[in-house]
Amino acid sequence: MLVNQEKIIEALIETVQMVAFSLLFSALIGLPLGILLVVTRKGHLLENTVVFNIINSIINIFRSVPFIILMVAIIPITRMIVGTSIGTAAAVVPLVFYAGPYIARLIENSLLEVDPGVIEAAEAMGATPGQIILKFLIPEALSSLVLGFTIATIGLVGASAMAGAVGGGGLGDLAITYGYQRFDTTVMLITVAILVVMVQGLQSFGNILSKKIRRR
C-alpha cells in the first residue's frame, strides 16, 4: 500500500468537509428556490409565471450539464469566490452549483406532495403566505424533505469523489491518484469501502429521522 493510515483519515476528513460545506450552501440556495418553484406555479399561493419560468429554466440548465464539465466550466467563478481553483475549498463551489438546483427539485417534489386541502384550510384561517410556508407547507412535508436531503447528501458524496479528479482532495482524489493511476488496488478497495459505509450510514440515518418525524 502506497499510503499510510493518516493519509486516508486526512482524505476522509476532506471529503466530510466538502460534503458538509457544499450541503450547507446548496441547501441555502436550494431551499428558497424549491419553495419558490412551488408557490409561484399556476394556481398556487403567489402565482407568478415569469418568476417560475426563469427559476425553472435556470435549474434545468444547471441540471443538464454533467458534473465533470460543470466543474471545469465554472473555474473562473470558483477563482473569483475562493481565489484558487484547486483544493478542498475550491471544490465546494462547483459542488454547490451541482447540488443547489438538485436540492431545489427535491424540495419542490416534497412540497408538492402536501395536500392542497391543508393549504386551503390555512388560507381560510387568514394565514399570510409566509405563515402558510413556515407553519403549514414545511411541517407537513418535513418527513419527505428529510429523505430528499438524504438523497442530496449521498449525491454530494459521489460528486465530491469526482471533484477529487481536478485536485479537490478527499477520498476520490486518493482513489484516483493512488488506486487508479498507480495501480494500488488496496487503496482503491479501502476508499470504496469507506464510501460504501458512509452512504449506508447516511441513508439509514435519513430513514430513521424521517420515520421519527412521520411517527409511523
Binding site: 395536500d115 391543508v118 386551503e120 384550510a121 381560510a124 387568514g126 399570510t128 403549514f136 411541517p139 407537513e140
Partner: peptide, 19 residues
C-alpha cells in the same frame, strides 16, 4: 384576512395537519 378570522370553515376531507 381580518374578515376571515370571523369566518370558520369545515371541510369534507377535514384538512387537518397530520404532522
Amino acid at each position: 384576512r381580518e374578515v376571515k378570522r370571523n369566518i370558520g370553515m369545515v371541510f369534507q376531507h377535514f384538512n387537518l395537519l397530520n404532522s
